[in-house]
Amino acid sequence: MEKTTNTQKPSQEVNSSIDVSVQVDNFDHASLYQNLAALKPTPGAVVTFTGLVRDLSSVGDVSGIFLEHYPGMTENSLIAIAKQAQQRWPIDKIIIVHRVGKIASDEQIVFVGTASKHRKEAFLACEFIMDYLKNDAPFWKKELTDDGSFWVEAKDSDSQAKQRWENKN
């Protein structure tokens, strides 16, 4: 956890169009959106996805989760995913923020925002990034309940979601 950034900035800015952050702290959705909307020339479309911690899962009531990651590899994996999205679609800017450590139910876990000239590529890139993140980025989730804590199993539906992008190539 040493390498984790604790503030909204600094994050890992590869170039002005990709901004990746793995952090303990919660993030401010409005300012991340504003960061995308304020681009010049003004993008015609900004799409954002926010993942939240569910309070109910297959193991019952969940008070929160613990997210572990592989410092260095995780950030590089997110950057590589963003670059792949930019190779597929003309995206002006991509912001990915993923939290680690202990996160209470109902709180935000992940943010993916894409800005582009038109809505279609912004939608597609945002969904592509989440599907790849779910399969490739080294994060591991543990659900915390009154009966103990349980590692979450990877889901087939997540690997199928990634697969459909590969079939499109």
């Binding site: 992940v110 993140l133 980025a137 979450v152 199993e153």
Partner: peptide, 10 residues
């Protein structure tokens, strides 16, 4: 060298 289970972030 790192060994790990399938990932479950997001």
């Amino acid at each position: 060298i790192a060994f790990f289970p399938p990932v479950t972030g997001g």
